[in-house]
Simulated assay, not measured.
Amino acid sequence: MMRHQRLEHRFVEHIPERLKPGVHYVSMEYATSAHSCCCGCGEEVVTPFTPTDWKMTFDGETVSLRPSIGNWTLKCRSHYVIDRGKVIEAGPWSDEQVEAERRRDRAAKERFYGQSSKVGSPIQPAPIKPAPSIWHRMWTWISGRS
């Protein structure tokens, strides 16, 4: 059972250091979004917007993410879809399903980014501008720079 049945979206430039549960932060500038896991475990879930990762749609009122969010590396292993702000719980996946999806994801990145599938050949996705560190933001605030 998901603790959060809906997520209120907030368009922000930078994802905040602390995520408020039930809020879906969307940074168009950094092509990413983040929210506190909808199961209520409190873990941060980050979803980059790339041709091979997540797609975000905004219909003027609500935000949707595709594909589903499978938190396979988290203790909770939650799995859900965010559709027009609603959190829709999806079924659990076996370890075999998770590994098959990881293989599919690697293959999609290799096809899109034109990388060799040779062992040891790193896949280099398009760079995403990282959010400034907390220290950088504090220095900017202290020094009055924007």
Rank of each mutant, 00 (worst) to 15 (best):
P51G: 00
C76Q: 10
N71M: 13
T62M: 10
M56T: 12
W72L: 05
S64H: 05
R77C: 02
S68N: 14
E96S: 12
T73F: 09
I88L: 14
P67G: 06
S64L: 08
R77H: 15
L74V: 00
F58A: 08
V98R: 14
E96F: 01
W54R: 02
T57Y: 12
G91Y: 08
D59K: 12
V87T: 07
L65D: 03
E61G: 05
L74D: 08
T62G: 03
V63F: 08
V87E: 09
Q97S: 02
S64Q: 06
T73Y: 10
S78P: 02
E61N: 11
A100C: 01
V81Q: 10
G70L: 10
S64Y: 06
I88Q: 14
D95P: 01
Y80V: 06
Y80P: 05
G85N: 09
R84L: 14
I82N: 02
Y80W: 07
A90I: 10
K75D: 09
P92H: 12
G85E: 11
V81T: 08
G70V: 11
A100P: 01
E61S: 09
V81W: 12
G91D: 14
I69K: 03
K55A: 14
I88S: 04
A100Y: 01
W54N: 00
L74P: 00
C76H: 13
W93Y: 09
K75M: 02
V81E: 09
R84W: 09
M56I: 11
D95C: 02
L65C: 04
D59A: 06
L65W: 15
W54Q: 01
R77Q: 12
K55C: 06
V87C: 12
A90S: 14
K75S: 06
E96Y: 04
G85Y: 13
A90G: 07
D83S: 07
W72A: 13
A90W: 09
A90M: 15
